[in-house]
Every structure is written in C-alpha cells, then in structure tokens.
Amino acid sequence: MLLENKTAVIYGGGGSIGGAMADAFAAEGARVFLAGRTPAKLEAVAERIRAAGGQAETAVVDATDAAAVNDHVDAVVEKTGSVDVSVNVITGEGNFQPLADIPVDAFAGAVARALTTQLITTRAAARHMVKQESGVLLFFGGSDPANAMAGMGNVQVGFDAVEALRRQWAVELAPHGVRTVTLLTGGIIDTFPDVPEMEGPRQGIINGSPLKRAATMSDVGAVAAFVASEKGRSITSTQVNISVGACYGG
C-alpha cells in the first residue's frame, strides 16, 4: 500500500473533498486523523473508513485557533510518532459575484480566513516535519492565471493567495526534506448542489476539458494519495493538475 504506516492529518476532513482524501489515504494504509468543527460530519467519514477496514480518528478543532491546532498536532505525533501528511481543504466563504457587488468586509474577510487557517495548520505540521526531515504538505485549489473568468468573485483570489503562501513554504521547507504540492482543480462537480442553478457551471467545467469530463472526488483522493506517497517523491514545489485539462497553470 502506498501510505502504509504513515500518519495523515486532514483539516476539513468532514467535508466532501477532505473526506475523499481521507478515504484514499486510509485505503492505502495511512492512519487518518480528521479535524474540523462539526462532529457528526467527521464521525460519518471516520465510520465509513473503519467499515472499509481503515484507521480513522476525529477531533473537533477550530483551524483558525493556533493553540488548538498545535495541541492537536502535538497529540497526534505523541500517539503515532510522526505527522507524514498534512492537508487543509478549508476555504473562506466564497462569494460568486461580480467584484463590484461584494462588500469589502466580506471579500477581505474570506480571503484572510483562508490564509490564516492555512498558515496555522501548515506551521503546526511543519514544526514536526522539519525535525523529522520529511513530510508532505498538500494544498487544494491552485492558481491558473491563464483561465481567469468572470463571476468568480473572491474565490479564485483566495486560491491565488493560498498558492502564493504554498510557494513561500516550499522554498523555506525544501532544505528540510519537506515537500509542498497543490492539487490544481477546475472544479469538482460531485460537490455541487443538485439544483438547476448549478447545471450551467457544471456543464461549463465539462465543456472546458479536452476530454469532456470532470474530475471526481475519487480522482481527487487517488491523486492526493499518490502525490503524498514515496511514489510521488519527485513532485514538490509545484501544482499537480487534476482538472482533466481544463486548467493550464503549472
């Protein structure tokens, strides 16, 4: 198995993307620690993993609280001996509106929250990874300046900001053997609400792919597990494109 005897921490582990990564990590042998703010959602993912024969534990953690995050990671390391993979799929509240229509506080607050939580969780894991001289920090979203489009509001701006943060972590942590990789997505339509208003965006993502299909949650998990494993050890300081060709950023 790709991640046998590895420890993975997932912030936002009760959500669809975090859950997909957790499923894949556990299926490849990782011991998965799911962190988030909604116990029922975390436990639902954990129960699914355990039913499939995997190992999963949950913890209610506010990922904007540095002390809480540090305490959680320290507890994970004390229990397992290491933190090998850390991924945070928490984003700020998305405003899919024209920029002129978004209140300044709402725009800036969402981007600030995304950056804050990413900084806190990455820093907490990096403390241990630097000591280990190993580890993988995964990010989700990515930056694709070639494909800017109207109506994205603060969403792509937030992804771009987090990607800039990831690049800075990459140069600072690479000398310590820590890899940093972003999964570049053009949108995971499995996660879209099943309402008529989303049919246009859903079809637009499919049409934007040369293969005329979109990445699934299963695809996200499979690529994340590969990148986090030793099979992906040559991949770092970059984005891995999981958009089925819809995004061109590298």
Score class of each variant (00 low, 15 high):
residue 2 L to E: 13
residue 5 N to W: 00
residue 6 K to H: 11
residue 13 G to H: 05
residue 13 G to E: 03
residue 17 I to R: 04
residue 18 G to M: 09
residue 26 A to V: 03
residue 29 G to R: 12
residue 31 R to E: 09
residue 39 P to M: 11
residue 41 K to N: 14
residue 41 K to A: 10
residue 44 A to Q: 15
residue 44 A to K: 15
residue 47 E to T: 11
residue 50 R to Y: 08
residue 67 A to F: 03
residue 70 N to S: 11
residue 70 N to C: 03
residue 74 D to L: 05
residue 79 K to R: 15
residue 81 G to I: 06
residue 81 G to T: 12
residue 81 G to W: 12
residue 85 V to D: 07
residue 92 G to L: 01
residue 94 G to V: 09
residue 95 N to C: 03
residue 95 N to V: 00
residue 97 Q to D: 09
residue 97 Q to N: 10
residue 99 L to V: 13
residue 100 A to T: 12
residue 105 D to V: 08
residue 107 F to S: 02
residue 108 A to Y: 10
residue 108 A to V: 15
residue 116 T to S: 14
residue 118 Q to N: 15
residue 118 Q to C: 09
residue 128 H to M: 04
residue 128 H to Q: 12
residue 129 M to W: 08
residue 129 M to R: 06
residue 132 Q to Y: 02
residue 133 E to K: 15
residue 133 E to I: 00
residue 136 V to R: 01
residue 137 L to A: 03
residue 137 L to S: 07
residue 139 F to S: 07
residue 140 F to K: 09
residue 142 G to C: 09
residue 143 S to Y: 14
residue 150 A to Q: 11
residue 151 G to I: 01
residue 152 M to Q: 13
residue 152 M to H: 06
residue 154 N to M: 05
residue 154 N to L: 05
residue 156 Q to C: 03
residue 158 G to V: 01
residue 158 G to I: 02
residue 159 F to E: 13
residue 162 V to Q: 02
residue 172 E to V: 01
residue 174 A to Y: 04
residue 176 H to F: 15
residue 177 G to R: 04
residue 178 V to L: 03
residue 182 T to G: 12
residue 185 T to H: 05
residue 186 G to N: 13
residue 188 I to S: 06
residue 188 I to N: 05
residue 195 V to E: 15
residue 201 P to K: 10
residue 201 P to V: 03
residue 202 R to V: 01
residue 202 R to M: 06
residue 205 I to Y: 08
residue 205 I to P: 08
residue 207 N to Y: 00
residue 208 G to K: 05
residue 208 G to N: 12
residue 208 G to H: 06
residue 210 P to K: 01
residue 215 A to N: 01
residue 218 S to Y: 05
residue 220 V to T: 08
residue 222 A to N: 12
residue 223 V to N: 06
residue 224 A to D: 02
residue 225 A to L: 10
residue 227 V to M: 07
residue 228 A to T: 08
residue 235 I to F: 10
residue 238 T to Y: 03
residue 241 N to W: 04
residue 242 I to Q: 04
residue 244 V to L: 07
residue 248 Y to R: 12
residue 249 G to D: 07
